[in-house]
Simulated assay, not measured.
Amino acid sequence: MLSYFEFGSEDGIPYLDMGSSASSVKMRLTNTRLSFVQPGDSATELAYFSDNRLFITKMEAVEQISIGTTENGF
């Protein structure tokens, strides 16, 4: 298994990519965003954290999903 860290810049925004030969998904970290990207001819952003929020393009819950807390009634 090969792991890698790659520093770069895209549209003037510096980033750090982290990945592994065992996975087709890489993680991209910028100053304002943490993204999970499926590389390829047209890279697909699968999910990202930004502005204290999590954005997911497609989600599949196999066992259970809970939203909220016991205090606010999940």
Rank of each mutant, 00 (worst) to 15 (best):
M1Y: 11
S3I: 15
S3R: 15
Y4Q: 13
Y4E: 09
Y4M: 13
F5Y: 08
E6Q: 11
F7D: 12
G8E: 06
S9K: 08
D11A: 11
G12H: 07
G12C: 11
G12N: 12
I13K: 04
D17Q: 05
M18L: 15
G19R: 04
G19F: 01
S20W: 03
S21E: 12
S21R: 08
S23W: 04
S24R: 14
S24E: 13
S24M: 11
V25D: 07
K26I: 04
K26T: 03
M27Y: 08
R28N: 03
R28H: 06
L29F: 10
N31K: 07
T32H: 11
L34S: 12
S35Y: 03
S35C: 10
F36G: 00
Q38W: 00
P39C: 10
G40N: 13
D41T: 13
D41R: 10
L46A: 11
A47Q: 04
A47I: 03
A47R: 02
Y48Q: 01
F49I: 15
N52D: 14
R53C: 07
R53L: 06
I56N: 03
I56R: 02
T57L: 02
M59Y: 00
Q64T: 13
I65V: 09
S66A: 06
S66M: 04
S66Q: 06
S66W: 02
S66E: 08
I67T: 07
G68F: 03
T69M: 03
T70C: 06
E71W: 12
E71G: 11
N72E: 15
N72P: 08
G73D: 09
